[in-house]
Amino acid sequence: MTVCTGNICRSPMAEVVLRDRLERAGLADRVVVDSSGISDEEDGNPVDRRAASVLREHGYEVPRHRAHRITPDELGQRDLLLAMTARHARWLRTQAPDEEAAARVRMYRSFDPAAPGLDDPAGAVADESDLDIEDPWYGDRRDFERTLEQVEAAADAIVEHVRGLLR
């Protein structure tokens, strides 16, 4: 599950990209990808029109989507929770039903080999917020393009991680 604030921009963009990559990897029938938000402010709304436009222009099919806030059941049931920002990751970890669920929270960009801080030999990131995917909602088209670039940059490594979990 990909997670952002309102579930109308970043997390649905990541959901669409991951579904596409998992399908290409032949794993679509073994993996469910969905998305949610930590807030209910956009509950029921579709993907932001700007996010949908950028996805379509890059060759992605944008399915029907209704934004929703992550539920306690979802927090406990998902094998991997991919947070768009450090704030989202902290919230997910504090809301997780147990330590095992909290340990399944990862920063989405922690899978991007070119992300800041990941070239450290120890593999440590000084501050998780260095891996934030900023909210494009407040910006212009270029901000949505940048979000898609960041989402795509981590997607293949996420697919490989999931492949490893399936073994």
Rank of each mutant, 00 (worst) to 15 (best):
W91Y: 12
H68D: 08
D73Y: 14
E74R: 10
R106S: 11
V105H: 05
R93Y: 10
R104Y: 01
Q95F: 08
E100V: 11
L131V: 10
W91F: 11
L92H: 01
L131C: 08
P116W: 03
Q77I: 04
G123D: 10
V105I: 08
D127Q: 14
E100Y: 14
A86L: 04
R87M: 08
A67E: 01
R104H: 03
P136I: 07
H68V: 12
P97R: 06
G117Y: 06
R66H: 09
M84F: 00
Q95A: 15
A103T: 03
L92N: 03
R69Y: 00
S110E: 13
D130I: 02
R69L: 07
L82R: 02
T71F: 02
E99Q: 15
A122I: 14
S129P: 15
R69D: 02
L75R: 06
A83P: 02
W91H: 11
A83T: 03
T85I: 00
R64K: 05
S129Q: 13
E134G: 12
L81D: 01
V105C: 06
E99M: 15
A67W: 01
T85R: 01
A126Y: 14
L92D: 04
A96K: 07
P97L: 06
R106V: 06
A102M: 04
G117F: 06
D127H: 12
T71R: 01
I70M: 03
Y108Q: 02
P136V: 07
L82D: 03
Q95G: 09
T85C: 01
D112A: 09
R64A: 06
A67S: 11
A83K: 00
V105Q: 05
F111E: 10
D132W: 00
D135F: 02
A124H: 15
A86I: 02
A103F: 04
D119E: 13
T94S: 11
L75Q: 05
D73T: 15
E128R: 04
G117M: 08
T94N: 10
